[in-house]
């Protein structure tokens, strides 16, 4: 199997990847981080979880990643979860500084006992997808922040996972690099047909990237609105400057603002 053999299916024809059923997460001490989270992730979806700090978006991601268990409810992978079904990109590049770029991307295979030589083609293919094939033998410290993030993305998609989780991956980057990476992420998605759940606190990023935006509110963390972004892919500078984009961004922004001051809404 190669990295880009998955067709981008039209909406409706998509099969579900993951179902989250009425999940609650309560931390020790009774803090409710998430209440009644329900979500069906379909193949090819680009879902953004958008909300202020403390709305439980990162908790939701950690639950899906299997890093914690829900207090109530279930997260079910359609057809069960295989070992290479999940790729994760964190807010930091999270690379091993003692390994070269290629060896970093090798990690998911390495942990399954596959030798470097046997997966070298796939590693180089993933690096080519993020435009870093020339830097395979560099060490992470030699790369810029944006390039490190690309390596992290290459590592997440090298196993051709059914779902890629991204936890505010570009939040620490400058605006120019961030826009470039947003463009690149979309073209990656177009080529690989990847399914992505993307956590962000940027309205513009979520509107630019996703076809579904789940707006979340805090105390307790919950989804308050699902906004569908009808514009198809590919998206580029035209989408970023279109009136439709502005309208969705405005609606999303207003929903988000309403979550910040719940007392005034009642």
């Amino acid at each position: 199997m190669t990295v880009h053999d998955r067709a981008v299916l039209p909406l409706g024809a998509r099969r579900p990847v993951l179902r989250i059923n009425e999940v609650d997460k309560t931390f020790n001490g009774g803090v409710v981080a998430l209440r009644r989270l329900s979500l069906t992730v379909n193949e090819g979806d680009f879902i953004s979880l958008l909300g202020p700090s403390g709305c439980g978006k990162s908790t939701a991601l950690r639950l899906i990643a299997g890093l914690m268990r829900p207090t109530v409810g279930r997260i079910v992978w359609e057809g069960g979860q295989g070992s290479d079904d999940l790729g994760v990109v964190f807010q930091e590049p999270t690379l091993m500084p003692w390994n070269t770029v290629a060896k970093n991307v090798w990690l998911p295979f390495r942990l399954r006992g596959q030798s470097f030589a046997s997966v070298k083609d796939r590693i180089m293919e993933a690096l080519a997808l993020v435009g870093l094939e020339k830097f395979a033998d560099s060490y992470p410290r030699e790369l810029s922040g944006g390039m490190k993030m690309r390596v992290s993305i290459a590592r997440a998609l090298v196993t051709n996972p059914r779902l890629i989780l991204m936890d505010e991956p570009f939040a620490a980057l400058d605006e120019i690099t961030r826009q470039k990476l947003n463009d690149d992420l979309l073209s990656l998605k177009a080529r690989t047909g990847a399914t992505v759940i993307f956590v962000t606190h940027s309205v513009f990023e979520s509107v630019f990237l996703s076809d579904r935006i789940l707006v979340m509110a805090a105390r307790p963390g919950r989804i308050i609105k699902e906004i569908e972004v009808d514009a198809g892919y590919p998206r580029g500078i035209d989408w970023r400057t279109s009136p439709e984009y502005a309208a969705v961004a405005r609606a999303t922004s207003e929903t988000l603002t309403s979550t910040l001051a719940p007392d005034e809404v009642h």
Binding site: G66, S83, F90, T94, L111
Partner: peptide, 29 residues
């Protein structure tokens, strides 16, 4: 060892030995 890398090891279901060999020992060097 970096806590995100530890999470990554969990996500990829690394064994105790793999975690030691690939993450903790190099971090400790």
């Amino acid at each position: 060892a970096d806590h995100n890398l530890r999470d990554l090891m969990n996500i990829y279901k690394a064994s105790r030995w793999q975690r030691l060999r690939f993450l903790q020992l190099p971090s400790a060097l």
